[in-house]
């Protein structure tokens, strides 16, 4: 039994690629997000927004992979932000210290205000 994470992407927004997650972010899910993020970075994208509206559970291994993406974004002077988190996922991101290095926003509009040129 494995629960695969579904990902969708919107590259049409002004200078920001939005990745939408649907499902559990575990090690496999985290790696899927990383693979997509690195493809976008290789294409020249330096601003990513992860919309977690479709995710209710994230585990610490998944979060560790998200931290690797943040490290990569810091290396290229890019930005990774998150929006639409459940209160529990937001609390967990703060516990792990992730919130110090990536913006967390209530919704996409708030994120775009910060990320857009």
């Amino acid at each position: 039994m494995t629960e695969s994470l579904k990902l969708n992407i919107d590259e049409t927004r002004d200078g920001v690629a939005v990745i939408y997650t649907d499902g559990y972010i575990n090690n496999q899910g985290g790696e899927e997000i990383a693979r997509l993020a690195y493809e976008l970075i290789d294409k020249g994208q330096s601003k990513l927004l992860l919309n977690l509206a479709g995710t209710k559970i994230v585990n610490s291994i998944g979060i560790s992979i998200l931290i690797e993406i943040i490290e990569k974004m810091l290396e290229i002077d890019g930005k990774l932000a998150f929006c639409c988190l459940t209160p529990t996922i937001e609390k967990t991101f703060h516990i792990m210290g992730l919130a110090q290095y990536a913006g967390i926003y209530a919704d996409e509009d708030a994120a775009f205000e910060e990320l857009s040129p």
């Binding site: 610490s60 291994i61 560790s64 931290i67 690797e68 516990i95 792990m96 210290g97 992730l98 290095y101």
Partner: peptide, 9 residues
């Protein structure tokens, strides 16, 4: 730059 250790959380 002191991103937390990746495991053990």
């Amino acid at each position: 730059r002191a991103i937390p250790r990746k495991r053990g959380h």
